[in-house]
């Protein structure tokens, strides 16, 4: 019973998050301007992090959660540095 519920919920969550990553990738590829691409990249990072968490629940291994933490840190650093680059034209002044 609970295996059926969990299997359905995990499969649904993985498919929904993969679709969300595809939509973010669409904005990343076809965004009309640079800030749209950066926003798409940020959404892509967040969606990939949640996908790692869901996969970690399905597999039952703690390593996916640590990878998700690393992806979260990388998302912050990447988006902040890209926004700084869009403002100033250089990252470190």
């Amino acid at each position: 019973m609970s295996a059926v519920i969990m299997s359905f919920a995990l499969t649904y969550a993985q498919i929904a998050l993969a679709l969300a990553a595809c939509l973010a990738g669409y904005r990343l590829l076809y965004g009309p301007r640079a800030q749209d691409r950066v926003l798409g990249l940020d959404t892509f990072y967040a969606t990939a992090m949640l996908l790692f968490v869901v996969t970690g629940i399905r597999v039952g291994s703690p390593f996916f959660f640590e990878a998700a933490m690393v992806i979260g840190v990388l998302a912050f650093v990447a988006t902040v540095s890209l926004a700084k680059f869009l403002i100033r034209g250089e990252v470190i002044e």
Binding site: A13, A16, L17, A20, L23, A24, T43, T47
Partner: peptide, 11 residues
């Protein structure tokens, strides 16, 4: 996951 999908759809 539904809320994340809705957010990406809005994006």
């Amino acid at each position: 996951s539904t809320l994340t999908l809705l957010g990406a759809f809005g994006l």
